[in-house]
Amino acid sequence: MFALLETVHALGLLSCFALLGTSRIGACIRWLSFQGILFGLVPLIVHQGGLGWRAALLAGGNIALKGIGFPLLLLRLRARAETNREVEPFVSFVMSILFGIFALGLSVWLTSELKPALHQAPFVMLDSSIFLILVGLFLIISRRNALMQVIGYLVLENGIFVFGVITVVGTPLLVELGVLLDAFVGVFVMGIAIYHINREFGSIEVDRLSALKG
């Protein structure tokens, strides 16, 4: 189990760095899909045999939504927006990657501080979840393109999901599925918002929105 988690951890970190360093939105969406499937598997690995169909339902729902559903939605949005397909960050890619290294160090430190309180959680997954949250927040504030901000939100969501799965053992299924539903509604609303932004401004770059200020 531990070796599996470590592999998930390493691949998850790589997908985050890929998101930080990739300049094409299409490639970012594919990395997001990869990440969704990867972390969707975590409940199956962590609750090995213990929870049976519940873990399977949780993993299946996550993979279906974050691995397949959201990426397809985002790809459609991107095709419809017909705008610039580059990410065009406020912060350069090299600096983004350096931030990633900093965030990784921070998350390792935070994890080692948190560890005494959450002793039943596997260390690597705790580390992953904090890192995902940091990278998600960073993507939201450092990217100009509204699609990339949705991607950042989903990375953040992945982090929260992993954190929930490994720390709270006895969460009712209803709550976990409710969170999933929230994320779904959130992305849906964001999709509609992006669609309207695109129709109004002919672009989905959020700094154009400053034109709204009177």
Partner: peptide, 15 residues
């Protein structure tokens, strides 16, 4: 990016 891979690898064995 290549250097980052090694940093990630290094942190993976530190933990």
């Amino acid at each position: 990016g290549a250097a980052t891979l090694s940093v990630v690898g290094f942190i993976l064995i530190l933990v």
